[in-house]
Amino acid sequence: QEKTFELKISHWVPASHPLQKSLEDWAAAVEKASGGTIKSRVFPAQQLGKAFDHYDMARDGIADVTYVNPGYQPGRFPIMGAGELPFLMSDAKGGSMGLDAWYRKYAEKEMKDVKFCLAFVHTPSSLHTRTKKVVVPDDIKGMKIRPADATIANFVTQLGGTNVQSSAPEVRDIIERGVADGVFFPAGSLVLFGVDKVTKFHIDAPMYVTTFVFVINKDKYNEMSERQKKAVDDNCNTEAAGRVGEFWGKFEDAGIDKVKAQSGQDVYALTPEQVALWKKASEPLIKTWGDGVRKTGVDPDAALTELRASLAKYNALTP
């Protein structure tokens, strides 16, 4: 006799965001695989808790499955920070699969108080600015930037800029008011939140990605029968990570075309020399990241080499 479950799935983006459908699809797949014994309900838009708390919510059982941005809490998930290193990934689907396959063994250490489900990234994204065209790293000096995550925040600081924090819905407002001069943002979201109305210059290069995970409450998972656990496990793997990453990636990629189609927008690629300058400028980040990781007892050099190999395997390593 199996118990039936009704899982509370919680995320913090609007219900119109592609992630809503990804989570609904995920829930439907689990329900089907469990023979209808695991049902779910998706709670969007911070209805069960604030964005920053979503990891703790799964850990504490406030929700059963949550969507987490580990970069929201600098210092807490140092290993995962590797995924945020600039100019690393070139593709949403492959990047998600490469990251997921690599992170599985570290999740046992770094996210041990939850059942790790999968890791993914949004599409490779870049910097959008209001008045100043940014081409080389030195251009960041003196600028106020809304970073995407803790690693990009470090990058901005290293380049002589300062960070301005805000939630995604406020980005438009702070740029319009000159509180920030630019934002690291994926292009689809740029349009979704109307930030394209207040920015003019858009770098078209795979500068960074933001990492995300789905995590599950451990007690809930442990209560499940073997068949139910398998139903969950079969949807918590690298293929599933690829599906989530690809679906969202397509949405974001469509954004850059929308921006290009608008008059008065300057969407520009970087030359190989400029990319080389950015990569060189971002090297200290690898060291900063490594210092944080070393404290956890993990060898950062080996870990990063593994990540690169994993990304290469899924054709998502930036050349």
């Binding site: 808790g49 919510m57 504490d60 059982g61 406030i62």
Partner: peptide, 9 residues
């Protein structure tokens, strides 16, 4: 237990 965690959070 989750309810009490909810308070602090």
């Amino acid at each position: 237990t989750p309810a009490l965690k909810l308070v602090g959070q």
